[in-house]
């Protein structure tokens, strides 16, 4: 899975660079305003990730494709340091994020209701999903200075979505197997294939908000310029709880890498 690689690579590079941190002066790389010990950071970054069930259920047999569409984040953070190492920050981040995935599933329980009609049962085959989201995130983070030039921040965030979509298709897997058993595994078998896939669009059932934990690392590359990486780990289901087409809770998990200007 590509996302795993991205996150592991990011983690390794952070650890490696941190381990080599120089013994720079704490003051030289501290808040630019030494009287208030506070300031602003303007961030711009590249956002990748996905909205996924965790842990991945046994019904999802394999993931054929996982390609983050590549999003973007711009934001403004205010911070204040209370001591040499500890501080707090809060911000407004505007983002676009999306992903495309194709997974093989087996006996994946699903049910869809539209216009008062319900179709459901157990699906075996290939499920392709595309998501897009535009929104704003407010993180409130505790900041800890690992070293003069390295900060780590951790804390809750809250997201509101201006617009979000979750749509896709179901059809046969690469072995040509694709069918729904209506209601139960002994119900009518309805074959599906890629020549006439069933499409779905759950945008009306997406939760308009999300919440979770953000973890961010900042490295002060220059006097005013940071390089940063962060992960927003969603702890709320992306889909409305009373919508049962997706049997699993889906969590938005996105990472952002970018540069920031520090006032």
């Amino acid at each position: 899975m590509n996302l795993t690689k991205y996150i592991l690579a990011a983690a390794f590079s952070f650890s490696a660079v941190v381990a080599n941190a120089q013994e720079d002066s704490w003051a030289e790389w501290g808040p630019t305003n030494t009287s208030t010990n506070a300031g602003f950071i303007v961030r711009a970054g590249y956002t990748i990730g996905g909205t996924m069930p965790l842990p991945i259920p046994a019904e999802i047999r394999s993931i054929n494709e996982f390609s983050p569409k590549g999003g973007a984040t711009v934001g403004l953070d205010c911070y204040k340091m209370f001591s040499k190492r500890w501080g707090i920050s809060a911000g407004w981040h505007f983002f676009y994020e999306g992903f495309h995935t194709s997974a093989n599933v087996k006996n994946y329980k699903m049910s869809i209701t539209m216009d008062g009609n319900t179709m459901g049962g157990y699906f075996t085959g290939c499920d392709v999903t595309n998501t897009d989201a535009w929104g704003m995130t407010i993180p409130v983070l505790a900041t800890f200075r690992l070293s003069p030039r390295w900060n780590v921040s951790l804390g809750p965030y809250f997201t509101t979505y201006f617009k979000s979509s979750f749509e896709g298709e179901v059809y046969d897997n690469p072995d040509g197997v694709g069918y729904l058993r209506v209601d139960t595994p002994t119900g009518e078998k309805i074959n599906m294939d890629r020549n006439n896939p069933a499409t779905y669009d759950f945008k009306e059932h997406m939760r308009p908000w999300a919440g979770g934990i953000e973890l961010a690392f900042d490295w002060k590359a220059m006097k005013h310029l940071n390089v940063f990486g962060s992960v927003d780990w969603g702890l709320s289901d992306a889909i409305e709880p009373d919508f049962d087409a997706v049997a699993f809770k889906m969590y938005p998990i996105y990472a952002t890498f970018g540069v920031a200007y520090r006032y």
């Binding site: 996150i7 941190v18 991945i56 780590v152």
Partner: peptide
């Protein structure tokens, strides 16, 4: 202090535990 460096790793490991064993067939046709 180095234990902080492992945080991202721990996050990644938590989320991307590999797929579990294939469920047995439920159909009986």
């Amino acid at each position: 202090m180095k234990k902080f460096f492992l945080l991202p790793l721990a996050f990644a490991a938590f989320g991307f535990a590999s797929c579990s064993d294939e469920p047995l067939n439920a159909e009986c046709d």
